[in-house]
Amino acid sequence: MLQFLQLIASGIAQGCIYGLIALGFVLIYKATETINFAQGDLMMLGGFLGLTGTLALGLPFWAAFAAALVAMLFFGMALERAVLRPLLGQPAFTVVMVTIGIGYLARGLVTMIPEWGTDTHVLPVPYKDDIVSIGGTDGLILSMEHIVIIAVTALLIVGLYLLFKHTKIGIAMQATSQNQLAAFYMGIPVRRINMLVWGLSAAISACAGLLLAPITFVHANMGFIGLKAFPAAVVGGFGSIPGALVGGLIIGVVETLAGFYLPEGFKDIAAYIVVLVMLAVKPNGLFGENLRKKV
């Protein structure tokens, strides 16, 4: 039983990472109807920026963390402005291909940067190897890495909730994604809002990368984890923000349990099995919207 709880806890932590990346997918999809296949690579860039902040610049961990998020916010905005906006009006397929290209480019460029390269790096965190035990010495043992992942994700969700529910700009982001034409009529600066969504999405992915770094490593290909976040978004009902997070948690937990109880190999396909089951049972995903208005 204890073991099971232990697995659930680490599954939740892993699921938070998937959920955050899935959230990045969903935000961009809702705003621009584009699937950004470079989402995982934005996460990877976030990891490298954190690395540079702590090791090269000598910033304290949390300062480097915050700086990396801000840098990625601006990077995402710049990406939208420079690469995506000129493609406005092109077929969705073109835009998707371009995001795949951005991913390749990011991975390629990272390996060319001297200190980054093709190596795997360890992101030094102040809470490395700390543990918290709940219920005495033979109770539940949680690693600090996992607790931080869950806590930061929770904080981020509260922040996003406040943004989307209680700020003018956040409501405008939702409005723009629901009915772009009407947003123009209201005088909402639609292009600037979409730019902001890209920035936000990049920053959230970077956050996932920085949280993940202590339990894996930082390397140019770490973004492939996005391939599992994508199913998370599908399970949640592509286009739903709570769905992305819940989908991430489901996949994280199922995968962790499969990795422990099932034969070797099941771990890696667990995410896709969950998707297939979900698509068979509830094709719109858990939080699929029927009310959605196409513009």
Partner: peptide
């Protein structure tokens, strides 16, 4: 009409005042 279907009525009104 072109309302924002998933925003509440009140949020729709707030968007009218966006500028």
């Amino acid at each position: 009409r072109e309302i924002f279907p998933l925003l509440t009525v009140r949020e729709n009104l707030l968007m009218g005042a966006y500028t």
